[in-house]
Amino acid sequence: MMEEKIVKALEAVCDESDFKTSEDFLEDGIIDSFQIVELVGELEEVFDIEISGDDILPENFINLSAICELISKYTED
């Protein structure tokens, strides 16, 4: 459920669609700095959370499972 929502957020922001297979969004050129900005906004809205600036690091956005982990951290609290 959460993963699907994240994929939806990614689709809203980026063009590519192989989010589930890519290991490294940055290396694969799926996401750039402006799209990160939009993605953060989208995720905050969808999950009704506020992502702290300290968490906006490459390792938290590198692939789908990293984003899932980051979001779980916020939704568990």
């Binding site: 700095s33 402006f34 900005v37 702290s52 600036g53 906006i56």
Partner: peptide
């Protein structure tokens, strides 16, 4: 400006 905009939007400038 793009570099400053990204740093502002990602809250980096508030965090550090």
């Amino acid at each position: 400006p793009s570099a400053l905009i990204v740093a502002a939007n990602l809250k980096a400038v508030r965090s550090v």
